[in-house]
Design a protein around this nucleic acid. Sequence first.
DNA 1: ATTCTTATTAGTAATCATTATTGTTACTGA
DNA 2: TCAGTAACAATAATGATTACTAATAAGAAT
Lengths: 147, 147
Amino acid sequence: MRTGEFQRNTRQRQVILEELCRLKSHPTAAELHRIVRKQLPKISLGTIYRNLDILVRNDMIQKLDFGGSEARFDGNPNRHYHLRCIQCGRVDDIKDLSTGIMLDDFKRLKGYKIHHLRIEFLGICPECQKKAKTDNKDVRRKKKNRR
Amino acid sequence: MRTGEFQRNTRQRQVILEELCRLKSHPTAAELHRIVRKQLPKISLGTIYRNLDILVRNDMIQKLDFGGSEARFDGNPNRHYHLRCIQCGRVDDIKDLSTGIMLDDFKRLKGYKIHHLRIEFLGICPECQKKAKTDNKDVRRKKKNRR
DNA sequence: ATTCTTATTAGTAATCATTATTGTTACTGA
DNA sequence: TCAGTAACAATAATGATTACTAATAAGAAT
Ligand SMILES: [Mn+2]
Ligand SMILES: [Mn+2]
Ligand SMILES: [Zn+2]
Ligand SMILES: [Zn+2]
């Protein structure tokens, strides 16, 4: 399931992926639309969104969904961390953060004046784990009954 | 400028703050609306949003703005970290994370099955720092000219 | 207490990013 | 050649949040 959700390799999707990967910035869908339109003048914003979504689901890019306003997209599908400007919204990559970080052990990074650090652990809560188990049982039962 | 943006202590604002602080969950504006309406049946959703915004600006609560859909609000204004379920959206607090964390040094936390960790450094980028400096100069010049 | 000022409210409309729908176009495989 | 359908452009719908406006009420002044 890595690659292969989509079966037609359209010019639109090619250009969207190319341009996103070429950019080191982390553009919004609208920004990417403006850029891609230079090559494909009549591509619609809906097509940008639809393809970005497909590319995300296929782990070829990632969506950086900070709250607030527009989501941003990243041509690099590998997990890495970011620096974000709380004034203009600009987003930069952080490369050297592999083994561990100590809080309050930073002040400047790439010329940024750091205000704070946001950390979230993302996972499945106990209730949802339970639910997943019973759901699986249901699926097995249904499969059995089907034949 | 800590407290004192608002000068009238309305019943609406009191109840909103009380209920939010009483809850250990991290409700959305709509959820809080439903709860507060038990005491104030005709309070409008706009009033909830307006007051939450004011309370955030006065550092009395905080807004947890994960991307995706609704923002959540936290009666605890002090910086702390969160566990979030990527299935149902539930948000829990993490208490014991004061000195440092090691990446890949966790698997379970409060019964959650952790999938990944989100880290963002938030600050002011070099360009915005420059801009702030020149802006300050402008302000000083204007003040000087005013008298 | 009564009046006065105006911050705040309830209700509603507007905004804006994103998603869904629709009719059309263009691959694909038989 | 042609049926089936992925993907498209154009446009409408959705949903969270913000803005607007006339009415209300908190708190000061009288
Ligand atoms: Mn990146
Ligand atoms: Mn919390
Ligand atoms: Zn900036
Ligand atoms: Zn859950």
